[in-house]
Design a protein around this nucleic acid. Structure first.
Length: 129
DNA sequence: CGCCTGACGAAAC
DNA sequence: GGTTTCGCCAGGC
């Protein structure tokens, strides 16, 4: 059967009847949780796999509640397109992010992921794209 | 109800 | 190639 290209696309901000697209945030969390150990991804990659590549900002925004979601979302595995730990300052201890990444086997130098392309994890690929 | 901010990204300069 | 600006959309004030 035809593979379903994108599961949750249509980044419509408004829904006909009902709540807003809270599902988008949920999807972001779900994808983030599926990030394998020792791998990292970018906000834009997640957004792109969700069909909202233009809303890369929203992905980071969604991460705002990463700590309030259950189970906890490994936001430390999500970095920007540059491979830079832009959101490290949002962790309890800012260094927790790189500390965790290093623990997973990811090399971090100067708030930047080394071999980023090597450890980069594509959500779309994992989703079966 | 309107303006500003924000964990990004890509284009412009 | 580095820096700056716009676009994107949602949430906070």
């Amino acid at each position: 059967m035809p593979a379903k290209k994108k599961a949750a696309e249509k980044p419509t901000s408004l829904k006909p009847s009902g709540k807003r697209e809270e599902n988008f945030f949920e999807l972001v969390f779900e994808v983030a949780r599926q990030i394998p150990k020792g791998r990292v991804t970018s906000y834009g990659a997640i957004a792109a796999s969700l069909g909202a590549k233009s809303s890369s900002r929203m992905v980071g925004w969604a991460m705002n509640g990463c700590d309030k979601v259950k189970p906890k979302v490994p936001a430390h595995r999500v970095v920007n397109r540059n491979g830079m730990l832009t959101g490290k300052f949002h962790f309890s201890p800012p260094e927790l992010m790189e500390q965790r990444l290093k623990k997973e086997g990811i090399k971090v130098k100067n708030d930047q992921v080394q071999d980023f392309k090597n450890v980069f994890w594509d959500p779309a690929e994992a989703l079966g794209f």
